[in-house]
Amino acid sequence: MSAIERNLNAAHAEVKAEIARTDSKTALLLAFVGAILAGTWTVVRDLPLNLPARIVGGLGLALLVWAAGLLLRSVRPNLSGRHGFPLWATLTAAEITTATHRDLATDIAGLSRLAVAKFTCLRRAVDLTLTGGALLILAALLTLGGAA
């Protein structure tokens, strides 16, 4: 195996590991966002909220729902891709052997684009989760301040 082939194989393994890492982070964050949404609903459904708290809290919840949507989009399988197993499903065994030997660099590029798209969704979801959480804290403070 040449140095180029070793480097391509290492790059391919690295990109696949990054995709798996992103999916793991996404699953944890999705569970966290779901817990915040469920917990918030449980706590506030019987509370008398003032108008500012309702507005700020509603916006915070909307951002959390948006974050959950981005997270779901991030883990949604892309079965129309032209690399990896979606491509292999359209080929014969002989074509797979040829394609995997010849097109490893193309597969690395395609998987890298997929990884960047996943990381972008994850990053935006984290930003929305932080902002939504801050707004929920502000809504709680507005409720406590309005109750006094």
Rank of each mutant, 00 (worst) to 15 (best):
H83Y: 14
H12A: 11
S2P: 15
L29F: 06
V65E: 05
K16Y: 10
T26L: 09
I4T: 15
L135M: 03
G58A: 04
G81K: 13
W66R: 05
L29N: 09
L138A: 14
H83S: 10
A117K: 09
T98G: 01
L30D: 15
T100V: 04
A89F: 04
R102I: 06
I19T: 09
L63Y: 05
A20K: 14
G57N: 07
S80D: 13
L91H: 04
L30A: 15
L72H: 06
L87V: 02
F32V: 14
A13I: 11
V33H: 11
A17V: 11
I108L: 02
F119G: 10
L64A: 06
V75H: 04
L122R: 05
T26W: 01
A117I: 05
F85G: 01
E18V: 12
V33S: 10
E95R: 02
A109N: 09
G84R: 00
L111D: 10
K25H: 13
D107N: 05
L61M: 14
L8M: 12
V33G: 06
L72V: 14
V56A: 03
T143F: 12
T120E: 10
L63F: 08
T143A: 11
A140R: 06
L138W: 02
G146L: 02
L37D: 11
L63R: 10
L87H: 04
L8G: 06
